[in-house]
């Protein structure tokens, strides 16, 4: 028993130190550093914002409708007299929560299925890949909108839906990455030793495609944020009065000509998060030696 827990401990330590090495390598590039800082900033803000927000995000006031930025209301107020600074601080929480969980879901099921298909091959592989191709032809926003309208909105619907649909392109990535590994000597050796398929997947294949999956995950995360905020912008994502950047921008557009601050604050917040994720993903890809640029966005 004791030896068991000792090796576990060692394993965990090495995983942690690998993470630190990768992160510091990412931070050694200027763009990677900026990206990591932006992402960390947004995650911390999402966690602490309910505590440090200066006003109540629901607080309406007829006296301060569309006020300019001032010392009391740093980013001004919107058409209902709500504090834009408070709402901008809180506006990323839903988006971050939903997209983070969905990304993990998508990478897990897509990655696992892709690796399995890459290993097994044959008619099942052929059939499922045709289905994957067919799914990728569908305009993603139509699928999402249709599901939201017919089933309902909210995280309980959005998390599994985004997780499912964004896992489909991951299947393809993981399968291709597995094909690169599966012909190598150590997999042949494992097969010759008579290892079970599950063991080969777990001990030989997954560790080797993990790099690709991580980079893919970082990229999917930013696409998913884009999808989520587009949905809220169109009015299908987050239910008011919960603050959300997409919804705030869509709302602020109607009085943008005389109160641009109400639109600009969430624009800057959302853009900085998405750019941060992309810069981090780019840096991660370079650190892990994976070229992620030459790929269609599907």
């Amino acid at each position: 028993m004791t030896t068991m827990s000792n090796t576990d401990f060692v394993k965990r330590r090495t995983a942690f130190s690998t993470l630190l090495t990768v992160l510091s390598a990412m931070a050694s590039r200027p763009s990677g550093l900026v990206g990591l800082i932006l992402v960390a900033f947004h995650i911390v803000l999402a966690i602490v914002s309910p505590v440090i927000a200066p006003y109540d995000f629901r607080e309406l006031s007829a006296q301060i409708i569309l006020n300019e930025p001032s010392s009391e209301h740093w980013f001004g107020t919107d058409n209902l007299g709500r504090d834009v600074f408070t709402r901008t601080m809180l506006g990323g929480r839903q988006a971050l929560l939903v997209t983070t969980i969905s990304t993990i879901l998508a990478i897990s099921w897509g990655g696992l299925l892709g690796v399995l298909l890459g290993l097994v091959g044959g008619w099942l592989d052929e059939l499922l890949m045709r289905l994957v191709d067919a799914f990728l032809c569908l305009p993603w926003i139509l699928v999402l909108l249709l599901i939201v309208v017919m089933v309902g909105s909210g995280p309980a619907v959005l998390i599994p839906t985004l997780g499912f649909f964004y896992g489909i392109p991951v299947i393809r990535m993981a399968r291709a990455a597995t094909h690169d590994v599966v012909a190598l000597d150590f997999v042949t050796a494992a097969r010759a030793r008579g290892e079970a398929r599950s063991t080969i997947v777990r001990r030989e294949l997954l560790p080797n495609v993990l790099d690709v999956l991580l980079v893919e995950g970082a990229m999917r995360w930013s696409w998913m944020l884009l999808a989520f905020s587009s949905l809220s912008f169109l009015g299908f994502g987050v239910a008011p009065p919960t603050p959300d950047w997409g919804l705030m921008i869509s709302n602020a557009r109607s009085f943008m000509s005389f109160a641009p601050w109400a639109a600009l604050a969430p624009v800057v917040a959302l853009s900085s998060l998405i750019i941060g994720i992309n810069l981090s993903a780019d840096a991660l890809a370079k650190v892990l030696g994976i070229d992620r640029a030459q790929k269609a966005p599907v």
Binding site: S230, F233, G246, I249, L270, I275, L279
Partner: peptide
């Protein structure tokens, strides 16, 4: 990177 990542509505 900026043009690619910023949502179209933004």
């Amino acid at each position: 990177i900026f043009a690619m990542t910023i949502p179209e509505f933004v």
